[in-house]
Simulated assay, not measured.
Amino acid sequence: MTTAAELPTENAEGKREAIPEYEPELRGRAERFTVFAFVFVPLIALLASVPFFWGWGLSLTDIAIASVFYLISGLGITVGFHRHFTHGSFKANRPLRIALAVAGSLAIEGSVIKWVADHRRHHKYADAEGDPHSPWRFGDDWKSVAKGLYYAHMAWMYLDDKKTSPRRFAPDLLKDKDIVLVDKLFLPIVLFSLGAPALIGGLVTMSWWGAFTAFFWASLVRVALLHHVTWSINSICHTIGEENFEVRDRSRNVWWLAIPSFGESWHNLHHADPTCARHGVLKGQIDISARVIWAFEKLGWATKVRWPNNDRLAAKRVKV
């Protein structure tokens, strides 16, 4: 009998074979420590930013650099990694496709192929056994949910020693030479994401202090803030919020995360209709990522955009 972890899938030669959902080797200690460092070093910087902000060291230059990098890397995740690469909400021409892969990598949330593989597995098993980051994995009582929130938010990245198989969940990206190259260049892109703000800050202010404050705010704090906004979609948006559309999991809409997440926190509709290019479909639901996709479409860079279908929305709407 074929198990859920070994579903038949076509290989590169078009032949059917059972590809496991996990990589054969477990996540090594060095790899887990690296992930741990990239999670907690920016977090420490974010926590340190409060007294740092009230005392000294924040300039308009720092704010401008951090805002630009937050915007580019954040939209790289939402428009690129998520709506385009994971769910195919629209087709992108080659330059845009490469740019979105690079922009998403700047967020330092993992390489594009790994990110997509993990997220596709999440959707396959949303809030059930097999979901890599469900806050309900330990139970429904408050202690279990509290533990699950921490696990879903960040701990799963360094506590889970299993690695999602890209061959099983992202075979399309493995066939794309451009995306494979961007995936292999993840480390240089990470170094650029951390180093470029310092270089820009130093050149603008012509000082080492300007380079240091730009690194603190536009590299460490920016990365930490974007990390926790993104991870909140995994944790908070699967725990609290409104359910406007019927889903088989516990995905919910959390309005106060809509702006910093560029519309990703309208998560309930997303799980009801994963390939839809717009997540905020109801009145007043601001979806910046959808607006960006709309602009790409008008420019001719994006085609076959899967905009909301009124009949499908009506069929999925929760009956009051």
Rank of each mutant, 00 (worst) to 15 (best):
E6W: 08
T9R: 12
N11F: 08
E21S: 13
E21G: 09
E25A: 15
E25W: 11
L26P: 06
L26A: 15
R29G: 10
V35G: 00
F36S: 05
A37V: 14
V39M: 12
L43T: 15
L47I: 15
V50P: 00
V50T: 14
F53E: 05
G55K: 11
L58P: 03
D62C: 04
F69K: 04
L71D: 05
G74R: 01
G76K: 10
G76R: 10
V79A: 11
G80A: 08
F81T: 04
S89K: 07
S89D: 10
A92R: 03
L96G: 03
L96R: 01
I98S: 05
L106D: 01
E109R: 03
K114H: 13
V116G: 01
A117R: 02
A117I: 08
H119Q: 06
H119G: 04
R120Q: 04
P132T: 07
S134F: 04
P135S: 13
W136K: 10
F138T: 01
G139Y: 15
W142Y: 09
K147T: 10
Y151A: 05
K162A: 12
L174K: 03
D183A: 08
S193N: 09
A196R: 00
L199N: 00
M206Y: 12
S207E: 15
S207D: 15
S207H: 15
S207A: 12
W209R: 14
W209K: 14
W209C: 03
F215M: 09
A218K: 01
V229Q: 01
N234L: 05
S235T: 01
I240V: 15
I240G: 02
E243I: 15
N244L: 09
N244F: 11
P260M: 11
F262K: 01
W266H: 10
W266A: 07
D273W: 11
T275D: 05
G284S: 11
I288E: 00
G300C: 10
A302T: 02
K304I: 03
R306N: 14
W307T: 02
N310H: 14
A315G: 13
